[in-house]
C-alpha cells in the first residue's frame, strides 16, 4: 500500500470526433486499462495511442489507470471483462514476472493482441563509481564479492532476467553482485543516481538526460548494435558477454482471454496504422523506442517464448517466489 500508488489512479476520457467504421466493431467506447500510474512512459504512450485510436475508430477510448501489484490489479479487472474487444489493457514485460511470482494468472489468462514497441536494456553506473566498462564491472565484482549491488525493477522482472543473462555470460556467481528490487525502474535509477546502489538496469528514455548531464554513464547495452544515443557504450557481445538480445522490454496491448481473433485483428490493424502516423513516429523517435509492431499471432508466439525463457532462467538460478 503506497499512498502515491493509490493516489495516482485516475480516469481520463479522450473525446474524439470521427465517423464510425462500417463494421460492428467497435460497438461503443473502449475501456483501456493501464497497469501503471499516470505520468510514466507507458502511461504517456498509451494516452497517445488512445488519442490516435479514437480518431481512427470513431469511438472514445476511456483510459483508466489501475496500477498496483506489477499489473495484478489490472489483470483482476481485465479477466472479469467481457471478451468482446471493448475492454483492452496495456502490457509490458513486468506482467510475465508477476505471473511467475503470484501464481494467480498465467500467459493464458489474457489474449495477446499486439505489440507496439521494444526497448533494449542498458546497464548504467555513476561516473563517481569508478566503473568504466563491463569488464571493469566484472573484475571489481570478482575482487570483492557482495560489495556491489544492482538496482532494478522487482523480482523475476524482465530487467532481472536480462541481468541474470549477463551475469551468466560473465560467469558471475550468485551473490557476487546483489540484486536490489525497487518498485519501479525509475526508483532504481534514482537510487543509483544517489549512490545507494552501484549499477542500475534501465531503458534509454529514463537515463538519456542524466547521461547527457554527466550524472550517469552507460557501460553496456543489451542489443545487437550500439544505440544512436550512446555511441560510446559497448554492446554486451562487444564486451565479450554474448547474450540473447531478443530479450527486450516490450509494450503491447492485451484483451480478455477468448476475444475473437477477427476482433483482435481488426483492432490491431488500426493500431498498426496509428503507430505509423507522423505524430506517433515522432514520439517513438523522441522517446528512443524501437518500433516493434507485432500482430496477434506473432505477439502470442513472442510472449510464449519470453515466458518460457523467464521460467527457465528463474528455475536455473533458483530464484522463485512461490
Amino acid at each position: 500500500m503506497k499512498a502515491a500508488k493509490t493516489a495516482a489512479a485516475a480516469i481520463l476520457v479522450v473525446f474524439a470526433a470521427g465517423s464510425a467504421l462500417a463494421q460492428n466493431y467497435p460497438s461503443g467506447d473502449i475501456r483501456y486499462i493501464l497497469h501503471v500510474k499516470p505520468g510514466g512512459a507507458t502511461d504517456v504512450m498509451a494516452r497517445r495511442l488512445a488519442d490516435g485510436l479514437s480518431k481512427a475508430l470513431g469511438v472514445n477510448i476511456v483510459v483508466e489507470n489501475r496500477d498496483g501489484g506489477s499489473g495484478a490489479r489490472q489483470m483482476a479487472q481485465l479477466t472479469r471483462a467481457k471478451p468482446d474487444g471493448q475492454t483492452i489493457g496495456s502490457v509490458t514485460a513486468s506482467h510475465l514476472g508477476m505471473f511467475q511470482q503470484t501464481g494467480t494468472y498465467t500467459v493464458d489468462s489474457v489474449a495477446w493482441a499486439c505489440n507496439l514497441v521494444l526497448d533494449p536494456y542498458l546497464l548504467v553506473v555513476r561516473p563517481e563509481s569508478g566503473i568504466t566498462s563491463l569488464q571493469d564491472l566484472v573484475a571489481k565484482a570478482k575482487a570483492a564479492p557482495g560489495k556491489l549491488s544492482i538496482a532494478g525493477f522487482g523480482e523475476a522482472s524482465g530487467g532481472q532476467i536480462a541481468w541474470l543473462m549477463f551475469a551468466d555470460a560473465a560467469k558471475l556467481a550468485d551473490g557476487d553482485i546483489n540484486w536490489v528490487p525497487y518498485s519501479s525502474v525509475g526508483d532504481a535509477v534514482v537510487a543509483t543516481l544517489g549512490g545507494h546502489n552501484d549499477i542500475a538496469i534501465a531503458y534509454t528514455g529514463l537515463v538519456k538526460q542524466q547521461v547527457q548531464a554527466g550524472k550517469l554513464k552507460v557501460i553496456g547495452v543489451m542489443a545487437d548494435n550500439r544505440l544512436a544515443n550512446f555511441p560510446d557504450a559497448q554492446t554486451f557481445a562487444e564486451a565479450g558477454y554474448p547474450v540473447d538480445t531478443s530479450w527486450q522490454q516490450f509494450r503491447g496491448v492485451i484483451m480478455p482471454a477468448g476475444t475473437p481473433m477477427n476482433i483482435q485483428e481488426s483492432f490491431c490493424n488500426t493500431v498498426e496504422q496509428v503507430m505509423k502516423s507522423p505524430e506517433m513516429v515522432k514520439y517513438i523517435t523522441d522517446s528512443d523506442l524501437e518500433p516493434g509492431y507485432m500482430g496477434p499471432e506473432a505477439f502470442t508466439k513472442f510472449i510464449k517464448s519470453q515466458d518460457k525463457e523467464t521460467k527457465d532462467w528463474m528455475a536455473k538460478l533458483g530464484v522463485t517466489g512461490n
Binding site: M1, G68, G69, A72, A76, Q101, T102, E155, A156, G321
Partner: peptide
C-alpha cells in the same frame, strides 16, 4: 520477493 501475503481474494493482490 513478489510473493503473495494474506491474499485471500485476487482483489487484495495490491
Amino acid at each position: 520477493m513478489g510473493s503473495e501475503r494474506f491474499v485471500f481474494s485476487p482483489l487484495l493482490l495490491d
